[in-house]
Simulated assay, not measured.
Amino acid sequence: MTASPKARTKRLHAAGLRAALPFLAPSFAGMLVFSLVPLIISGVISLTDWNGLDELLAPGMFAEHFVGLDNFRAILTSSEFLQVLGNTCRYIVLYIPCMLAASLAVACLLSQSRRGVTAFRVVYYIPVLTSWVAASLIWKSVLSPQYGALNNFLALFGIQGPGWLLDEAWAMPAIVLVSVWKDMGFFGLILLSGMIGIDRGYYEAASLDGAGPWARFWRITLPLMTPAIFYVLIVSLINAFQLFPQIMIMTDGGPNGATQVMVERIYKYGFRYYRMGYAAAFSWILFAIIMVCTFIQMKGQKRWVNYDT
């Protein structure tokens, strides 16, 4: 008796899965060992007051250190959490618009065939290749209020530069400046790929209708680049919530806690104060915040992202 098309399809799928399993197994094993298992262990640790020094797999360890949801309750009801979340949100509000504007400017410049563009294509990507440690150390010197190159440059025009990293009001904008300088090359390349993919016929038609460069940018380029912009917003928001190396090297959370952010708190509670359970709970709260923000972005894309090219 001849099998139905549905049954044949199922058999083909099963045979394809069996053939693919040997090739997928190394990736699944890596994901299990380096992602899923640490995720589960982190969730368990967040329910304890483990200090990170006692043997993790010792008999009775979990029962001895179990505190339930006390870590989450302590974090969410503390004034420190509100301050840290506020600092992180302040960074995001400053960083994302500046980064997006700088990346769009880079993409527009790279998309044009003018003299010097080839050299700029090489130079603009150098910050992306530079390690955060090296970049942060250089910028920490540049932003020195007394001997830094930036304040010395401003002094040439009679402008007294601020204290930058030593000033509570200017420390976070200084971190934003460095982050935009470092990231705009990477995100500019992504936006450039979206810009190049636009059908040139739209620009030719608009030119025939008398549209100028600005009109073509606002009416054609920007709407058709919204998928690339949406991707940049998703990635940059996740990266912004995970702000860490530039904070640790340039300000260490100071001055007066003005640059204390989520990941900086997680690191210090875990590896300086030896409150590993508290740090794990902090990381799960950060995970939940990122998930909620990403979900809102995914739902909101239908209102402004245009996938018709």
Rank of each mutant, 00 (worst) to 15 (best):
T2E: 15
K6L: 14
K10G: 04
A14N: 13
F34T: 05
F34I: 04
S35I: 11
L39A: 15
V44E: 05
S46C: 05
D49N: 15
G52M: 07
E55S: 14
M61R: 10
N71E: 09
T77G: 00
R90G: 14
Y91H: 01
Y95T: 00
I96N: 02
L109E: 06
L110I: 12
S111T: 13
Q112P: 03
Q112E: 15
V117I: 11
R121M: 03
V123A: 13
Y125W: 12
I126F: 09
P127Y: 03
L129E: 10
A134W: 01
A135M: 12
L143H: 08
Q146D: 14
I159L: 13
G161P: 06
E168F: 06
A171T: 00
M172R: 03
P173T: 09
V176Q: 00
G188V: 02
I190R: 08
L191K: 06
R200S: 10
Y202T: 03
S207I: 05
W218L: 14
T226A: 06
L237K: 01
I238G: 03
I238H: 00
N239F: 11
F244A: 10
P245Y: 13
Q246D: 03
I247K: 04
D252Y: 14
D252T: 08
G254W: 00
A258M: 03
A258W: 03
Q260H: 07
Q260D: 12
V263N: 06
Y274G: 02
M276P: 00
Y278L: 12
Y278T: 04
F282Q: 04
I285Y: 04
V292N: 09
T294Q: 12
T294E: 11
I296D: 07
K299D: 07
G300K: 12
Q301P: 08
V305P: 02
N306C: 14
D308E: 14
T309A: 15
